[in-house]
Amino acid sequence: MKLDFDHLKQIKNVLSFQELVDTKFSGKNNALCWQRPLEGDFEEIVNLLELKEDITVISEADLLHLNLSEQGLLAREIILNDIKLLREYGASPTVNLLKCYERDEEFDYISTDVYSFHVDRSPIATDTFLCTYFGASSDIIANEEVTQKIQIPEVIEKLKALHDPQDGDFESFLEDNFFDLHYQPNAEAKPINLEIGHLYRLAVDHPEQKVPPCVHRAPEENGRLRLLLIC
């Protein structure tokens, strides 16, 4: 199914992997989507893989050792080709079989886990690539529809009370604990789900970035495994 992102300038559709990596972000556009049909049986692959930890890294050897049906073979070829394309581009893709991420439940007023809307940060120019092959998929949200949590008065007051000046200045405290990376959706916000099968490129916060970084979050798994590629 072809996705309709015409109403959302944040996302731009592309027609190939080369266009995905060559297209520059601009204006409100901080997410690119390479749309392609999801061919094959990815659930078969998930059912044959062994979940050793809540997040289990799946190697190419793990995939190649699977005894698959014709539909399973089609699915595996898509995953292996995505890995190949990203490596040739210079990225370091990882395929994960995922039960759940670790939760941050230390403070009820701010969470720093990936289920919270957040941005990625890097000291070097890079982007986040993401594809969910099976299970729940991530959400993104327009930057104008969120408020940085450290800009919320009641949150910042609680963080100031938590900060010990002997440990350094307050701004460094916020950055070192990743509090500044997390966002609260506004009342009228409409998150956009990144549907399965498509390969996305999301803008990251780094010194050379020309657009606001893409605000995103991991989905609730609801007891269902996820198979995803990320780098």
Rank of each mutant, 00 (worst) to 15 (best):
R201G: 06
G40W: 08
D104P: 02
E157S: 14
E60V: 15
I11R: 11
H7K: 12
D205W: 02
I196L: 03
T56F: 07
I55A: 12
R36E: 09
E175P: 00
Q10D: 13
H216K: 04
S137V: 08
F107I: 03
F5A: 11
R36N: 07
K9T: 14
L97K: 00
D62Q: 06
E154N: 15
F117V: 07
P37W: 05
C231Y: 10
P123S: 09
K158Y: 08
F5C: 13
K84D: 14
E154A: 15
K99A: 03
R121K: 11
E44W: 05
L63I: 10
H163G: 04
D180K: 14
I83P: 05
Y89P: 00
T94I: 14
V146Q: 00
R224D: 01
R217P: 04
A203S: 15
V114M: 13
E106D: 13
F129G: 05
D169E: 14
Q18D: 15
A75S: 04
Y101S: 04
A125N: 11
I83K: 08
A187Q: 15
I11W: 12
P153R: 11
S59I: 12
G168K: 09
K99W: 01
C33W: 04
Q166V: 10
E44T: 10
Y133H: 03
A161P: 00
W34K: 08
H206A: 09
I156V: 08
E221W: 02
D180E: 11
L162Y: 12
S116W: 04
C100N: 12
I83Q: 09
I110D: 07
K52P: 02
K210T: 10
D62Y: 04
D113V: 05
P37M: 04
N96Q: 11
I140M: 02
T112A: 03
F42E: 07
K2L: 14
F173V: 08
Q148N: 15
Q151K: 13
T128R: 01
Q184P: 12
K149P: 02
A61N: 13
E19K: 15
L15M: 08
T132G: 02
D113R: 03
E157T: 14
E60I: 13
Q71G: 06
D41A: 09
G90N: 03
A142L: 03
P37D: 12
Y109V: 09
V21D: 01
I196S: 06
E220F: 01
